[in-house]
Design a protein around this nucleic acid. Sequence first.
DNA 1: TGCAACATGTAATGTGTTACATGATTCA
DNA 2: TGAATCATGTAACACATTACATGTTGCA
Lengths: 180, 180
Amino acid sequence: MALRHALLGILAERPRSGWGVLKHFESTLGYAWPALHGQIYPELARLRDAGLIEQSGSGPRGAKEYTLTEAGSEEVRTWLRETPPSRSGRSDPLLRVFLLWLLEPDEAEAHLRREADYLRGLLAELETVAAGPRESTRNELAYGLALDWGLRETRARLAWAEAAIATVRSPEWRDAPAPA
Amino acid sequence: MALRHALLGILAERPRSGWGVLKHFESTLGYAWPALHGQIYPELARLRDAGLIEQSGSGPRGAKEYTLTEAGSEEVRTWLRETPPSRSGRSDPLLRVFLLWLLEPDEAEAHLRREADYLRGLLAELETVAAGPRESTRNELAYGLALDWGLRETRARLAWAEAAIATVRSPEWRDAPAPA
DNA sequence: TGCAACATGTAATGTGTTACATGATTCA
DNA sequence: TGAATCATGTAACACATTACATGTTGCA
Protein backbone atom coordinates (compact mmCIF):
# COMPACT_ATOMS: atom_id res chain seq x y z
CA MET A 1 0.00 0.00 0.00
CA ALA A 2 2.81 2.43 0.77
CA LEU A 3 4.07 2.62 -2.81
CA ARG A 4 0.63 3.73 -4.04
CA HIS A 5 0.65 6.58 -1.57
CA ALA A 6 4.23 7.54 -2.34
CA LEU A 7 3.25 7.87 -6.02
CA LEU A 8 0.16 9.90 -5.19
CA GLY A 9 2.27 12.15 -2.97
CA ILE A 10 4.79 12.80 -5.75
CA LEU A 11 2.03 13.67 -8.19
CA ALA A 12 0.45 15.97 -5.61
CA GLU A 13 3.44 18.27 -6.07
CA ARG A 14 2.98 18.55 -9.80
CA PRO A 15 2.19 16.38 -12.82
CA ARG A 16 4.99 14.08 -13.93
CA SER A 17 5.70 11.26 -16.32
CA GLY A 18 6.51 7.74 -15.09
CA TRP A 19 10.13 8.52 -15.87
CA GLY A 20 9.92 11.74 -13.85
CA VAL A 21 8.46 9.79 -10.93
CA LEU A 22 11.28 7.27 -11.25
CA LYS A 23 13.95 10.02 -11.12
CA HIS A 24 12.25 11.54 -8.08
CA PHE A 25 12.48 8.16 -6.33
CA GLU A 26 16.17 7.89 -7.18
CA SER A 27 17.05 11.34 -5.90
CA THR A 28 14.67 11.86 -3.01
CA LEU A 29 11.81 9.58 -1.96
CA GLY A 30 13.87 6.44 -2.47
CA TYR A 31 15.63 7.19 0.81
CA ALA A 32 12.34 6.32 2.51
CA TRP A 33 10.81 3.91 -0.01
CA PRO A 34 12.93 2.60 -2.91
CA ALA A 35 11.12 1.65 -6.11
CA LEU A 36 12.29 0.70 -9.60
CA HIS A 37 10.65 1.15 -12.96
CA GLY A 38 9.46 -2.46 -13.03
CA GLN A 39 7.19 -1.64 -10.13
CA ILE A 40 6.39 2.00 -10.89
CA TYR A 41 4.95 1.69 -14.40
CA PRO A 42 2.43 -1.06 -13.58
CA GLU A 43 1.40 0.72 -10.38
CA LEU A 44 0.79 4.00 -12.26
CA ALA A 45 -1.41 2.08 -14.70
CA ARG A 46 -3.41 0.65 -11.77
CA LEU A 47 -3.80 4.10 -10.16
CA ARG A 48 -5.03 5.46 -13.50
CA ASP A 49 -7.52 2.59 -13.86
CA ALA A 50 -8.71 3.29 -10.31
CA GLY A 51 -9.26 6.96 -11.13
CA LEU A 52 -6.76 8.25 -8.55
CA ILE A 53 -4.57 9.78 -11.26
CA GLU A 54 -5.27 10.63 -14.90
CA GLN A 55 -3.15 11.00 -17.99
CA SER A 56 -3.09 14.72 -18.60
CA GLY A 57 -0.75 14.93 -21.56
CA SER A 58 1.91 13.34 -23.72
CA GLY A 59 5.55 14.27 -24.18
CA PRO A 60 8.30 13.28 -26.56
CA ARG A 61 9.38 9.62 -26.80
CA GLY A 62 5.99 8.34 -25.74
CA ALA A 63 6.13 10.02 -22.32
CA LYS A 64 2.80 10.07 -20.48
CA GLU A 65 2.12 12.88 -18.09
CA TYR A 66 -0.02 11.95 -15.09
CA THR A 67 -1.95 14.33 -12.85
CA LEU A 68 -3.46 13.63 -9.43
CA THR A 69 -7.26 13.60 -9.39
CA GLU A 70 -9.42 14.89 -6.56
CA ALA A 71 -10.09 11.24 -5.57
CA GLY A 72 -6.34 10.60 -5.46
CA SER A 73 -5.75 13.65 -3.30
CA GLU A 74 -8.42 12.47 -0.85
CA GLU A 75 -6.96 8.97 -0.84
CA VAL A 76 -3.42 10.00 0.12
CA ARG A 77 -4.57 12.47 2.77
CA THR A 78 -6.94 9.95 4.32
CA TRP A 79 -4.09 7.44 4.43
CA LEU A 80 -1.85 9.94 6.21
CA ARG A 81 -4.52 10.91 8.72
CA GLU A 82 -6.12 7.58 9.48
CA THR A 83 -3.77 4.66 9.01
CA PRO A 84 -1.22 4.01 11.75
CA PRO A 85 2.39 4.02 10.50
CA SER A 86 3.87 0.56 10.01
CA ARG A 87 6.56 0.01 12.62
CA SER A 88 8.15 -3.09 11.13
CA GLY A 89 11.29 -2.51 9.19
CA ARG A 90 14.21 -4.58 7.97
CA SER A 91 17.81 -3.54 8.45
CA ASP A 92 20.60 -5.68 7.06
CA PRO A 93 23.26 -3.63 8.91
CA LEU A 94 21.48 -4.14 12.26
CA LEU A 95 21.04 -7.86 11.57
CA ARG A 96 24.81 -8.05 11.16
CA VAL A 97 25.26 -6.49 14.61
CA PHE A 98 23.24 -9.32 16.16
CA LEU A 99 25.55 -11.78 14.39
CA LEU A 100 28.79 -9.89 15.04
CA TRP A 101 29.90 -12.36 17.70
CA LEU A 102 30.32 -14.99 14.94
CA LEU A 103 33.38 -13.17 13.59
CA GLU A 104 36.83 -13.05 15.09
CA PRO A 105 37.30 -9.79 17.04
CA ASP A 106 39.66 -8.37 14.39
CA GLU A 107 37.16 -9.13 11.65
CA ALA A 108 34.36 -7.58 13.71
CA GLU A 109 36.44 -4.43 14.17
CA ALA A 110 37.19 -4.27 10.43
CA HIS A 111 33.49 -4.59 9.70
CA LEU A 112 32.64 -1.76 12.08
CA ARG A 113 35.32 0.47 10.57
CA ARG A 114 33.80 -0.08 7.12
CA GLU A 115 30.41 0.85 8.55
CA ALA A 116 31.82 4.02 10.11
CA ASP A 117 33.50 4.95 6.81
CA TYR A 118 30.27 4.47 4.92
CA LEU A 119 28.40 6.60 7.47
CA ARG A 120 30.96 9.39 7.28
CA GLY A 121 30.53 9.45 3.50
CA LEU A 122 26.76 9.48 3.77
CA LEU A 123 26.89 12.24 6.37
CA ALA A 124 29.07 14.36 4.08
CA GLU A 125 26.57 13.85 1.23
CA LEU A 126 23.62 14.83 3.38
CA GLU A 127 25.45 17.86 4.74
CA THR A 128 26.18 18.97 1.18
CA VAL A 129 22.48 18.77 0.35
CA ALA A 130 21.63 20.61 3.57
CA ALA A 131 24.08 23.39 2.70
CA GLY A 132 22.46 23.92 -0.70
CA PRO A 133 19.70 26.38 -1.57
CA ARG A 134 16.17 25.75 -0.36
CA GLU A 135 12.82 27.07 -1.44
CA SER A 136 10.25 27.94 1.17
CA THR A 137 7.29 26.06 -0.29
CA ARG A 138 5.70 23.75 2.23
CA ASN A 139 6.72 20.61 0.35
CA GLU A 140 10.35 21.74 0.28
CA LEU A 141 10.16 22.43 4.01
CA ALA A 142 8.86 18.88 4.50
CA TYR A 143 11.81 17.55 2.50
CA GLY A 144 13.99 19.60 4.84
CA LEU A 145 12.46 17.76 7.80
CA ALA A 146 13.21 14.43 6.12
CA LEU A 147 16.78 15.56 5.53
CA ASP A 148 17.10 16.54 9.18
CA TRP A 149 15.85 13.05 10.12
CA GLY A 150 18.58 11.56 7.92
CA LEU A 151 21.27 13.79 9.40
CA ARG A 152 20.32 13.00 12.98
CA GLU A 153 20.02 9.27 12.33
CA THR A 154 23.34 9.13 10.48
CA ARG A 155 25.16 11.03 13.23
CA ALA A 156 23.63 8.70 15.84
CA ARG A 157 24.72 5.61 13.90
CA LEU A 158 28.21 6.98 13.44
CA ALA A 159 28.54 7.66 17.17
CA TRP A 160 27.27 4.13 17.78
CA ALA A 161 29.83 2.64 15.39
CA GLU A 162 32.67 4.45 17.12
CA ALA A 163 31.52 3.18 20.51
CA ALA A 164 31.10 -0.32 19.09
CA ILE A 165 34.67 -0.32 17.77
CA ALA A 166 35.85 0.42 21.32
CA THR A 167 33.69 -2.42 22.63
CA VAL A 168 35.06 -5.10 20.29
CA ARG A 169 38.62 -3.97 21.07
CA SER A 170 38.03 -4.28 24.83
CA PRO A 171 39.17 -7.27 26.91
CA GLU A 172 35.52 -7.88 27.90
CA TRP A 173 34.73 -8.67 24.28
CA ARG A 174 37.98 -10.38 23.35
CA ASP A 175 37.96 -12.67 26.40
CA ALA A 176 34.23 -13.36 26.39
CA PRO A 177 33.26 -17.03 26.33
CA ALA A 178 31.16 -18.72 23.64
CA PRO A 179 27.36 -18.85 24.16
CA ALA A 180 26.13 -20.78 27.20
CA MET B 1 19.22 -14.08 1.45
CA ALA B 2 19.24 -12.27 4.78
CA LEU B 3 16.63 -14.52 6.38
CA ARG B 4 18.76 -17.62 5.67
CA HIS B 5 21.67 -16.03 7.49
CA ALA B 6 19.54 -14.83 10.37
CA LEU B 7 18.37 -18.43 10.88
CA LEU B 8 21.91 -19.79 10.67
CA GLY B 9 23.03 -17.16 13.18
CA ILE B 10 20.31 -18.13 15.66
CA LEU B 11 21.22 -21.78 15.38
CA ALA B 12 24.90 -20.91 15.85
CA GLU B 13 24.05 -20.00 19.46
CA ARG B 14 22.49 -23.34 20.22
CA PRO B 15 20.17 -25.92 18.65
CA ARG B 16 16.52 -24.91 18.55
CA SER B 17 13.20 -26.04 17.13
CA GLY B 18 11.38 -24.04 14.47
CA TRP B 19 9.11 -22.79 17.23
CA GLY B 20 12.11 -21.73 19.29
CA VAL B 21 13.52 -19.85 16.32
CA LEU B 22 10.15 -18.15 15.86
CA LYS B 23 10.09 -16.99 19.50
CA HIS B 24 13.63 -15.69 19.19
CA PHE B 25 12.54 -13.61 16.20
CA GLU B 26 9.60 -12.20 18.14
CA SER B 27 11.65 -11.23 21.15
CA THR B 28 15.00 -10.27 19.69
CA LEU B 29 16.08 -10.60 16.05
CA GLY B 30 12.74 -9.39 14.74
CA TYR B 31 13.83 -5.85 15.60
CA ALA B 32 16.32 -6.15 12.75
CA TRP B 33 14.60 -8.69 10.49
CA PRO B 34 10.98 -9.69 11.19
CA ALA B 35 9.87 -13.16 10.14
CA LEU B 36 6.73 -15.21 10.73
CA HIS B 37 6.23 -18.95 10.90
CA GLY B 38 4.89 -19.09 7.35
CA GLN B 39 8.34 -18.12 6.15
CA ILE B 40 10.48 -19.74 8.84
CA TYR B 41 9.35 -23.35 8.55
CA PRO B 42 9.82 -23.63 4.76
CA GLU B 43 13.19 -21.88 4.99
CA LEU B 44 14.40 -24.27 7.71
CA ALA B 45 13.40 -27.17 5.48
CA ARG B 46 15.43 -25.67 2.61
CA LEU B 47 18.46 -25.12 4.85
CA ARG B 48 18.22 -28.74 5.99
CA ASP B 49 17.99 -29.95 2.39
CA ALA B 50 21.03 -27.82 1.55
CA GLY B 51 23.01 -29.39 4.42
CA LEU B 52 23.53 -26.10 6.27
CA ILE B 53 21.57 -27.35 9.28
CA GLU B 54 20.54 -30.83 10.36
CA GLN B 55 17.75 -32.26 12.46
CA SER B 56 19.47 -33.32 15.64
CA GLY B 57 16.51 -34.46 17.70
CA SER B 58 12.79 -34.52 18.32
CA GLY B 59 10.76 -33.04 21.13
CA PRO B 60 7.19 -33.33 22.33
CA ARG B 61 4.34 -32.36 19.98
CA GLY B 62 6.35 -33.14 16.88
CA ALA B 63 9.01 -30.53 17.61
CA LYS B 64 12.13 -30.85 15.45
CA GLU B 65 15.43 -29.72 16.87
CA TYR B 66 17.86 -28.28 14.33
CA THR B 67 21.62 -27.91 14.74
CA LEU B 68 24.00 -25.84 12.62
CA THR B 69 26.40 -27.91 10.51
CA GLU B 70 30.01 -26.99 9.77
CA ALA B 71 28.90 -25.98 6.26
CA GLY B 72 26.23 -23.73 7.75
CA SER B 73 28.73 -22.11 10.08
CA GLU B 74 31.05 -21.40 7.15
CA GLU B 75 28.19 -20.02 5.10
CA VAL B 76 27.05 -17.44 7.65
CA ARG B 77 30.57 -16.30 8.48
CA THR B 78 31.47 -15.96 4.80
CA TRP B 79 28.32 -13.89 4.30
CA LEU B 80 29.28 -11.59 7.18
CA ARG B 81 32.84 -11.18 5.97
CA GLU B 82 32.39 -10.92 2.23
CA THR B 83 29.01 -9.55 1.23
CA PRO B 84 28.52 -5.80 1.53
CA PRO B 85 25.58 -4.82 3.75
CA SER B 86 22.45 -3.87 1.87
CA ARG B 87 21.85 -0.14 2.31
CA SER B 88 18.32 -0.03 0.94
CA GLY B 89 15.60 0.05 3.52
CA ARG B 90 11.96 1.03 3.66
CA SER B 91 10.55 3.27 6.36
CA ASP B 92 6.84 4.03 6.42
CA PRO B 93 7.32 6.73 9.11
CA LEU B 94 9.97 8.51 7.03
CA LEU B 95 7.80 8.29 3.90
CA ARG B 96 5.11 10.12 5.85
CA VAL B 97 7.55 12.93 6.63
CA PHE B 98 8.11 13.49 2.90
CA LEU B 99 4.32 13.74 2.51
CA LEU B 100 3.69 15.80 5.65
CA TRP B 101 3.03 18.98 3.67
CA LEU B 102 -0.19 17.37 2.34
CA LEU B 103 -1.83 17.70 5.77
CA GLU B 104 -3.13 20.85 7.40
CA PRO B 105 -0.55 22.18 9.90
CA ASP B 106 -2.69 21.11 12.89
CA GLU B 107 -2.99 17.60 11.51
CA ALA B 108 0.74 17.47 10.84
CA GLU B 109 1.43 18.52 14.41
CA ALA B 110 -0.98 15.88 15.76
CA HIS B 111 0.78 13.25 13.66
CA LEU B 112 4.18 14.28 15.01
CA ARG B 113 2.90 14.21 18.59
CA ARG B 114 1.69 10.62 18.06
CA GLU B 115 5.12 9.75 16.69
CA ALA B 116 6.84 11.31 19.70
CA ASP B 117 4.52 9.42 22.08
CA TYR B 118 5.29 6.16 20.34
CA LEU B 119 9.02 6.84 20.52
CA ARG B 120 8.87 7.69 24.23
CA GLY B 121 7.14 4.36 24.86
CA LEU B 122 9.67 2.46 22.80
CA LEU B 123 12.54 4.23 24.55
CA ALA B 124 11.11 3.24 27.95
CA GLU B 125 10.87 -0.39 26.79
CA LEU B 126 14.44 -0.43 25.52
CA GLU B 127 15.71 1.21 28.70
CA THR B 128 13.96 -1.46 30.77
CA VAL B 129 15.74 -4.16 28.78
CA ALA B 130 19.04 -2.31 29.12
CA ALA B 131 18.58 -2.10 32.91
CA GLY B 132 18.08 -5.87 33.17
CA PRO B 133 20.74 -8.49 33.86
CA ARG B 134 23.25 -9.36 31.17
CA GLU B 135 25.52 -12.30 30.65
CA SER B 136 29.04 -11.77 29.45
CA THR B 137 29.06 -14.31 26.63
CA ARG B 138 30.12 -12.78 23.34
CA ASN B 139 26.72 -13.26 21.74
CA GLU B 140 25.03 -11.47 24.64
CA LEU B 141 27.53 -8.65 24.31
CA ALA B 142 26.63 -8.41 20.61
CA TYR B 143 22.95 -8.20 21.56
CA GLY B 144 23.97 -5.39 23.90
CA LEU B 145 25.51 -3.55 20.95
CA ALA B 146 22.26 -3.98 19.00
CA LEU B 147 20.33 -2.65 21.98
CA ASP B 148 22.62 0.35 22.17
CA TRP B 149 21.98 0.96 18.45
CA GLY B 150 18.24 0.92 19.19
CA LEU B 151 18.58 3.29 22.13
CA ARG B 152 20.67 5.82 20.21
CA GLU B 153 18.42 5.68 17.15
CA THR B 154 15.25 6.06 19.22
CA ARG B 155 16.64 9.02 21.15
CA ALA B 156 17.71 10.66 17.87
CA ARG B 157 14.27 10.17 16.35
CA LEU B 158 12.57 11.54 19.45
CA ALA B 159 14.75 14.65 19.39
CA TRP B 160 13.93 14.99 15.69
CA ALA B 161 10.18 14.71 16.38
CA GLU B 162 10.34 17.42 19.01
CA ALA B 163 12.20 19.74 16.63
CA ALA B 164 9.74 18.89 13.84
CA ILE B 165 6.77 19.83 16.05
CA ALA B 166 8.35 23.26 16.54
CA THR B 167 8.84 23.56 12.77
CA VAL B 168 5.23 22.83 11.81
CA ARG B 169 4.02 25.29 14.48
CA SER B 170 6.26 28.06 13.12
CA PRO B 171 5.01 30.86 10.84
CA GLU B 172 7.50 29.72 8.18
CA TRP B 173 5.59 26.45 7.88
CA ARG B 174 2.08 27.79 8.40
CA ASP B 175 2.47 30.61 5.87
CA ALA B 176 4.44 28.60 3.32
CA PRO B 177 2.97 28.59 -0.20
CA ALA B 178 1.91 25.49 -2.13
CA PRO B 179 4.54 23.78 -4.35
CA ALA B 180 5.83 25.88 -7.24
C1' DT C 1 27.03 7.25 -36.42
C1' DG C 2 27.34 5.72 -32.06
C1' DC C 3 26.50 6.37 -27.17
C1' DA C 4 24.00 8.09 -23.23
C1' DA C 5 19.86 9.33 -21.53
C1' DC C 6 15.00 9.31 -22.12
C1' DA C 7 10.79 6.52 -21.98
C1' DT C 8 7.67 2.56 -21.45
C1' DG C 9 6.23 -1.82 -20.85
C1' DT C 10 6.00 -7.23 -19.53
C1' DA C 11 7.72 -11.68 -17.57
C1' DA C 12 10.10 -14.47 -14.44
C1' DT C 13 11.66 -14.95 -10.08
C1' DG C 14 12.24 -14.13 -5.31
C1' DT C 15 10.58 -12.57 -0.81
C1' DG C 16 7.14 -11.77 2.65
C1' DT C 17 2.24 -11.88 4.67
C1' DT C 18 -2.07 -13.87 5.60
C1' DA C 19 -5.12 -17.53 5.60
C1' DC C 20 -6.02 -22.30 5.86
C1' DA C 21 -5.28 -26.63 8.21
C1' DT C 22 -4.01 -29.85 11.81
C1' DG C 23 -2.80 -31.70 16.08
C1' DA C 24 -0.40 -32.25 21.12
C1' DT C 25 0.36 -30.66 25.85
C1' DT C 26 -0.36 -28.04 29.96
C1' DC C 27 -2.88 -25.83 33.28
C1' DA C 28 -6.95 -23.86 35.53
C1' DT D 1 -13.14 -29.93 29.68
C1' DG D 2 -11.93 -25.82 27.68
C1' DA D 3 -8.49 -22.34 26.67
C1' DA D 4 -3.79 -21.01 25.96
C1' DT D 5 0.36 -22.29 24.27
C1' DC D 6 3.23 -25.30 21.84
C1' DA D 7 4.32 -27.08 17.27
C1' DT D 8 4.34 -27.79 12.22
C1' DG D 9 3.11 -27.37 7.71
C1' DT D 10 0.92 -25.57 2.96
C1' DA D 11 -1.54 -22.34 -0.12
C1' DA D 12 -2.95 -18.01 -1.82
C1' DC D 13 -1.83 -13.60 -2.33
C1' DA D 14 0.83 -9.30 -2.30
C1' DC D 15 4.97 -6.92 -2.96
C1' DA D 16 9.68 -6.22 -4.95
C1' DT D 17 13.72 -7.21 -8.00
C1' DT D 18 15.82 -8.56 -12.16
C1' DA D 19 15.74 -9.69 -16.78
C1' DC D 20 13.76 -9.28 -21.21
C1' DA D 21 12.12 -6.29 -24.84
C1' DT D 22 11.48 -2.14 -27.56
C1' DG D 23 11.87 2.40 -29.37
C1' DT D 24 13.18 7.82 -29.34
C1' DT D 25 15.95 11.99 -28.81
C1' DG D 26 19.98 14.74 -28.22
C1' DC D 27 24.62 15.37 -28.52
C1' DA D 28 29.54 14.65 -29.49
